Simulated scan of single mutants.
Amino acid sequence: MDVISRTFLPATTEAGVVIPSRHLPIVERCVDADDDAVLVARCTRPEAPLSGDHLLLLTRRRLVVIQKTPVLHRLRLHLNANLRHLSNVTWRPDLTRPALEMAATAVDGVRERFRMKFADTEAVWRFEGVLRDVFLA
């Protein structure tokens, strides 16, 4: 069983995210076969609101963000980073919307920010717990 069917697809189902099959080759190239997906979510970049839709995939070892361009709907790998190479990782739940904003500094010194929106506050706390387990454990 490959990483896609074993962990990525169940994580998308848990998050309530429908992923087109054209995302899968990018995920397969970025994630090792023994690295489990722990969080999948659609997100936006607050500093670039017109940059298109993004898909955030967090595993135990990697953070992968895939961008879908707004006009032509092309997929582009925005970020593929080993978690050890990320610094100053922070997140902040926003229960009024409900959403969660995550930020991290990549190895090249660029500060990346991602905002994930959820259906309810329970999902915010569940995803916040996953981030705590991965980054603070």
Rank of each mutant, 00 (worst) to 15 (best):
L9F: 00
L9Y: 00
P10C: 05
A11L: 04
T12Y: 00
T13A: 12
E14V: 11
G16H: 01
V17R: 02
V17I: 09
P20K: 07
P20S: 06
P20V: 03
R22Y: 10
L24K: 07
I26D: 06
V27D: 05
E28S: 12
R29L: 13
V31M: 11
D32I: 02
A33W: 00
D34P: 01
D34A: 09
D34F: 04
D35G: 02
D36Q: 13
D36V: 12
D36M: 14
A37C: 15
A37W: 07
A37T: 15
L39R: 13
L39N: 02
A41M: 08
R42E: 15
C43T: 10
C43N: 04
E47R: 13
P49S: 01
P49R: 08
L50T: 14
S51H: 11
G52T: 10
G52H: 05
G52R: 09
D53K: 15
H54G: 02
H54F: 15
L56M: 15
L56N: 01
L57T: 15
L57Y: 08
L57G: 01
L58N: 05
L58K: 10
T59M: 09
R60M: 10
R61A: 11
R61P: 01
R62P: 01
L63E: 06
V64C: 11
V64D: 07
V65Q: 03
I66G: 03
Q67H: 13
Q67N: 15
K68G: 01
K68Q: 15
T69D: 08
T69V: 07
P70W: 11
L72G: 01
R74A: 13
R74H: 15
